[in-house]
Write a protein that binds this DNA or RNA. Structure first.
Length: 258
DNA sequence: ATGTCCCCCGCTGGGGGA
């Protein structure tokens, strides 16, 4: 069973890339972030035709927006962080059946946070606190759980192209990394780091300054798995191919195999 | 400071967010 996370930076702008990528990589579940569209604009028909007959989305105008696309039915869809008031559409969860049992999928577009000390950074910290409490509850209800998405956190120095120059800047702060660690402490494992990976493996590259060509990137898109799922994990890989396509998303898809 | 891309508003360019 394959589950992918991909921040598409507008599903309107990236629909053809999603269709092309899934045609070559027919994953079972595709979790998207930054749809930047309202629910009424969601391209259900094209995605159904691509094999994703079951789609749950949580959109909003212009910003944010998340969706779970699945070949198998989705159950118990929950939008947003339960217990945290949020005007943004950033989290959607659903349960899907897999060969070894059902999996709870929690798909998040984590707050960017702009810069430490800003109001947006304070919102990021509160949001992360809310998410942690929500995940604690979800893990109590679902022992086979995946938390994935655009975390907007580079958890360790090796997840950044310039950990010295970017020390204490957004994505790299001690506070953000502490929140990531607290998610791990809930019993989640960073599936990407369960395996040997090439050095300088990143999932996001700035559009500017030839970021991708120079591999000036960050690993900020993650797939965490619960303790129960951990022994089942067969792999976790970042696919850089679509980042080379014309008018790409700035993020690459990351895929978990269980 | 800037680069780039995407959205909106609403009009051919500016502003916000990342």
């Amino acid at each position: 069973m394959k589950i992918t996370t991909w921040n598409v930076n507008s599903l309107t702008a990236r629909l053809q890339h999603v269709l092309d990528w899934t045609a070559a990589n027919p994953v079972d579940v595709l979790c998207l972030q930054e749809l930047k569209m309202t629910d009424d604009k969601f391209p259900f028909e094209a995605l159904h035709a691509a094999g994703y007959e079951h789609c749950a989305m949580f959109g909003q105008k212009t910003y944010n927006g998340v969706a779970i696309l699945s070949r198998q039915p989705l159950r118990d869809v929950v939008k947003n962080i339960v217990g945290f008031e949020d005007e943004h559409s950033r989290v959607i969860a659903a349960t899907v059946d897999g060969p070894a049992g059902e999996v709870r999928v929690v798909n998040g577009y984590f707050v960017n946070g702009q810069e430490p000390g800003s109001e947006k950074f304070a919102y990021k910290m509160n949001w992360l606190r809310g998410l942690n409490g929500y995940l604690r509850d979800e893990l109590g209800k679902h022992e086979r759980l995946v938390l994935l998405g655009d975390f907007n956190i580079a958890p360790e120095d090796r997840d950044s192209y310039d950990p010295v120059g970017l020390k204490d800047t957004i994505h790299h702060t001690v506070q953000e990394r502490e929140h990531f660690r607290q998610l791990i402490e809930l019993g989640l494992a960073d599936s990407f780091r369960m395996f040997d990976q090439p050095e300088k493996s990143f999932s996001w590259w700035d559009y500017r300054m030839l970021g991708y060509q120079k591999n000036r990137g960050l690993r900020i898109d993650h797939i965490l798995v619960s303790g129960k799922l951990k022994p089942e994990v067969k792999g976790c890989t970042i696919d850089r191919v679509p980042r080379k396509w014309e008018k790409p998303s700035d993020h690459a898809p990351v895929t978990l195999e269980i």
